[in-house]
Design a protein around this nucleic acid. Sequence first.
DNA 1: CCCTATTCCTGTGCGC
DNA 2: TGCGCACAGGAATAGG
Length: 289
Amino acid sequence: MPELPEVEVVRRGLDAHVLGRTIADVQVLHPRAARRHLAGSLDLTARLRGTQITGTGRRGKYLWLTVSSGEAIVVHLGMSGQMLIGAVPNPTHLRIATTFADGSSMNFVDQRTFGGWMLADLVTIDGSEIPEPVAHIARDPLDPAFDRDGVVTVLRRKHSEIKRQLLDQTVVSGIGNIYADEALWRAKVNGARLSSALTRRQLAEILDAATEVMTGALGQGGTSFDSLYVNVNGESGYFDRSLEAYGRVDEPCRRCGAPMQRDKFMNRSSFYCPKCQPRPRVRRTASAG
DNA sequence: CCCTATTCCTGTGCGC
DNA sequence: TGCGCACAGGAATAGG
């Protein structure tokens, strides 16, 4: 659920609150929170104790804290992860607890346990230093080196539905179900259309719309569709008031007034205007031709 | 290689 | 009142 804007809000909060602090103790309270750290929870915590937080970074929905050992704590929030500074009001879903030498704390809370931490080396890819487990993730639209036209070229070759491609983090990162629907609504394209059947101009419009809507959401402190995604102080953003498509089934399209529709797609919901974003006319079948 | 379906997880809300 | 189930969905992985 947290997508690029929400993750960036969290990264900024961490940058403001934990830089320079030294980890006195860290405990993994649920094994799933460290499952991507293949050497195990005890290896993760042992290597972190005594290190100092030296910086923060983000690509797409991954964020990381660089530490004085030269490695990075890579954090993915998954569906419901929170990075909270200070005391945790309800420790039911507290998964990783960190105490700094000055007595302050940083806690990873995650109800659905899709998120987690790992400790990894940094590598240089295409001129950018990023953690090795994030190396396969494409640049996101807020990256200064994001190559929009290059992504358009990739999308022109994809014989797959455009929404599926927008959600593929190796094509363009940071976009999840909410902002994919918002970008497609703004560009007036149905997500079930084939990426390869769209023009370069249409694909560029979709990417530009995604960039605009995520920039707007970041300015509002992120979207909070429910109370699960919050900043480092446990507060929600306000962008949900600006959503034009996501969650608006049966409500009037804000452009043409037609009732918005919901389709099941990829095990999730897609919200769109049937008039502004008509479905592709012909349903393709595997045996056609 | 390219593409798609499955899997992991838990709290909430709704119908019966 | 309580039970069962659909739903929320990011991303790795298995499979076609």
